[in-house]
Nucleic acid binder design. Structure first.
Lengths: 311, 311
DNA sequence: TCAACTTTTTGTCCAGGACAATCAATGAAC
DNA sequence: GTTCATTGATTGTCCTGGACAAAAAGTTGA
């Protein structure tokens, strides 16, 4: 009956879903490296113990970041976790007040205190203003929570709870922005297929909206061809694409190259997010953002450029 | 180089993504039924022409609705489309004013007139109030747009544009609801894994919020085990799960049974959405909703029930 | 330091067999 | 006539093990 609520182990299809590793890849790793080495049920089918799945998740993240499977597949859980932390966020600036706030918010998430969570986020928003709130609260908190989930300290449900609350708050805040009619630049915002992370988009939108620019979000997972087609139908000045840390960097680079080529020349292509940090020199004609704070500046620069072009 | 912007045909992995049919299934159908019958590239790998992919998409929808592959795989595109329409929405009530509005909104979507789209939706919301807006505008429009996409009359990007705008409007509207502190019942809202459709959740939330109940949404794709665990951590009165038309009905039924069993008895389990229409008798202990309008009534009933229990 | 070439690594594809789970049809019992 | 068990066909997913192109790493020469 395979009751998913009493997990003795996962079948291969579930592991594929959970880790993002194709069934073929799982089988070929087993053949080549001896890991994962699942048990077998009575019909000879693979049954993966949860620990192996946890380890696979870590390995997957590390390979996305450029490590080779053969080099890391033999290491143990704690080593892998450490590697991931080393590669990730360089450091926290250790502002004591802020980190206390973050700790409190993390506690709310862990204890499912949605009401407290909502209130404290809302408070921060009021205090800091939308842009500041996004760049110095939402962004670091998101990666904190992502890391905590990776380390198994948080359930997926708890990450979802946080994401939902942030979405509510950001969307509400964005929709109260004065929204200049016909504001320029007009920005088309989306992610590539296979990128499901919607929060990055919303953060970008929140940085753009207060600048008086028009931002049209297509949500996640828009096929490249559709993005190009959208620039025919409407007159966008900028296409902006966001990549989460889980997105394979080479796939991002290739997609951006291809998209750059198919877009009209006068349409700028912007990209940002943890998924493509440090790929700048591989891309020409694409404006790469290392930080959310660079967005308002870039909008200003775009306007300046445009003004001088027309003169 | 396989430029996705000049599609001569899709490799099997892309077809799996587009149709939701596993690679194994695609190969075994070819072996058994002779369809799909893709071309081969120089390395002998399958290259699926776009028409075959379109047909596969339709077949997939029909099998989810209970048809057997062998019976329908030989039929042609127009026949399949007709079957799908017959099974789908019974009819439109032919309110001339409303259908004119819908036609206008569809036009805005098709022409990417996001500004007009936003304005006309906002107008409807103001005129009808949140609940009425959701049940008689958002819900029918969503299925209209879903159908149009299925028939190839809309790009995915256009569906996304619509979904994003609706999300913005609904989330903003929900967050302005007075939100009774500690309002009962407390509802936990989510979807099962593999169900990505977030709009259904938002519609439910919009129906619940004005009733003064507390609604905590976990967004899409929460593992069953996490849903159960969440009811430990916080005290929910109701767990509500939504299923889009694309969700396989039997999977929904099985999941609901399993979840019902693992939830505490005093927690009610509600389910709704096109994905489980007509499955009522297969489920005991689960409140099945055929329509969004039934939600406010059910909340009222829950309160009444509870009042008499305590007396 | 960079470019061109070679080798190794790695993910994905293929064929074709197997089989359990599901569905449809049939028959028995109430 | 409806319900329930039995049988038989259908169908999705898993298996093994071989193959190979694309990407990365290593090597050589300017």
């Amino acid at each position: 009956m395979n009751n998913p609520l009493l997990p003795a182990g996962l079948p291969i299809a579930a592991v594929e879903r959970d880790t993002g590793l194709a069934k073929d890849t799982l089988r070929v790793w087993e053949r080549r490296y001896g890991f994962p080495l699942p048990a077998r049920d009575t019909h000879g089918e693979r049954v993966y113990p949860p620990e192996q799945v946890d380890k696979l998740r870590l390995i997957r993240r590390l390979t996305d970041l450029g490590h080779r499977p053969a080099k890391i597949i033999g290491l143990d859980l704690s080593t892998l976790t450490r590697m991931l932390e080393d590669m990730g966020s360089p450091k926290d600036p250790a502002d004591p007040e802020r980190s206390a706030q973050f700790a409190a918010i993390l506690k709310f998430v862990r204890l499912h205190l949605h009401e407290d969570l909502r209130r404290s986020l809302q408070q921060q928003l009021m205090k800091l203003g939308l842009q500041q709130f996004v760049s110095s609260v939402v962004a670091p908190l998101s990666s904190l929570i992502g890391d905590a989930w990776l380390r198994g300290e948080l359930e997926i449900a708890e990450e979802h709870l946080f994401t939902e609350q942030i979405q509510n708050i950001l969307r509400a805040a964005i929709s109260t922005q004065p929204m200049a009619q016909g504001g320029r630049p007009v920005v088309l915002l989306t992610t590539f297929p296979e990128e499901q992370h919607a929060l990055g988009l919303l953060m970008v939108e929140a940085m753009i909206a207060p600048e008086g620019a028009s931002c049209i979000s297509l949500g996640t997972q828009t096929p490249l061809e559709d993005i190009r087609a959208a620039t025919d139908a409407a007159s966008f000045d900028i296409v902006a694409v966001s990549f989460s840390a889980a997105y394979p960097a080479r796939q991002a680079v290739e997609g951006l190259r291809s998209l750059r080529q198919s877009l009209p020349e006068q349409v700028a292509l912007w990209a940002g997010g943890a998924g493509i940090r440090g790929c700048a020199r591989k891309l020409t004609g694409v404006h790469l953002f290392e930080s959310l704070d660079a967005i308002p500046v870039a909008i200003e620069a775009w306007r300046h450029q445009r003004a001088s072009d027309q003169a």
